[in-house]
């Protein structure tokens, strides 16, 4: 079914959950007024990104009052939001929630925590262990958090699990000032387009903006059609509510004309992966 999505390209405040929750609520209100069906926030929207030792201070349990408040709001509009999740056994995850009709439809914990270059996530956070597609009012979706998407297997698994849209929550830093466009933006655009094209699925990419300790997050949130074409792309570096109408017909047509996912041989893939694991001694 067709649906309207708002990619909320916001600027969270580092370590200020109450302020960020208020910001998120304002954006939800605006999107709902505009008649949107779904609103997507960036990775760690409720906390900011370079948290370091702040991780336990900003963490929320899924049964917390704050998440409860967002669940309530999801009765009017479906909500995807990134936050630090604290579990009952005191592990802290970089997580994303899909909230719909007052309930948690899905929780994804970031699997690939970058710990190289300017990133240091695995020092502070626990690693998620699954990629699962899930059913929503608007079809079967999958969620990825930033670095997850740079691992082909993550998107592949979600597509094999039936996802027809990949929602990627991101806090991608701006780097590379040599080319016609920003280096990290160009790399991501290539990635989202290629992923959509390979898997005949939609990509909804939401990246934050603003600066933390001199590091800029570049925005450029976008809706990429299953053809790989970027249909709507947000501004670079500026706060913006990027609105896109996701047409079911485009997905159907693409899957008829390029049925690669239909033809994908899961048996061969699995057999070869098992052989590779055996040979590696794992």
């Amino acid at each position: 079914m067709d649906f309207t999505v708002v990619l909320a390209q916001i600027k969270p405040k580092l370590g200020c959950v109450a302020d960020n929750l208020a910001l998120v609520e304002r954006e939800i209100g605006k999107a709902r007024e505009a008649g949107a069906d779904l609103i997507v926030f960036p990775e760690l929207a409720l906390s900011g990104y370079f948290l370091k030792d702040l991780v336990p201070e900003v963490a929320l349990r899924t049964d917390s009052q704050e998440i409860g408040r967002l669940m309530e709001l999801s009765r009017g509009i479906s909500i995807v939001v990134g936050f630090v999740e604290e579990t009952a056994d005191y592990h802290f995850y970089n997580s994303a929630l899909y909230l719909e009709d007052g309930a948690i439809r899905h929780l994804h914990r970031k699997v690939y925590l970058p710990t190289y270059g300017l990133f240091d996530e695995q020092r502070y956070l626990a690693r998620g262990a699954s990629f699962r597609a899930f059913d929503t009012k608007f079809g079967r979706f999958g969620m990825l958090i930033c670095e997850d998407m740079w691992h082909l297997s993550a998107s592949y698994l979600l597509a094999m699990d039936g996802a027809t849209a990949l929602i990627c929550l991101s806090s991608s830093p701006a780097r590379g000032i040599e080319g016609d466009s920003l280096g990290s933006a160009a790399a991501w655009q290539q990635l989202t387009s290629t992923t959509a094209l390979f898997l005949n699925c939609r990509v909804l990419y939401c990246n934050r903006v603003g600066y933390e300790d001199g590091v800029n997050f570049w925005g450029g949130s976008e809706y990429v059609a299953p053809s790989g074409e970027s249909i709507v792309r947000g501004l670079l570096l500026e706060e913006e509510c990027v609105t896109a109408t996701v047409a079911e017909g485009a997905l159907r047509r693409e899957r008829i004309s390029s049925p690669m996912i239909r033809d994908e041989n899961l048996f061969v893939t699995l057999q070869e992966l098992q052989r590779i694991m055996r040979e590696r001694g794992q």
Binding site: I177, S181, L182, G214, N216, L237
Partner: peptide, 18 residues
């Protein structure tokens, strides 16, 4: 060789924001 338009936006934005 820098993309000076982009660099300018990043640095001006940096000063304003920070």
């Amino acid at each position: 060789v820098a993309n000076t338009d982009l660099l300018r936006r990043l640095l001006v934005g940096f000063v304003r924001d920070e």
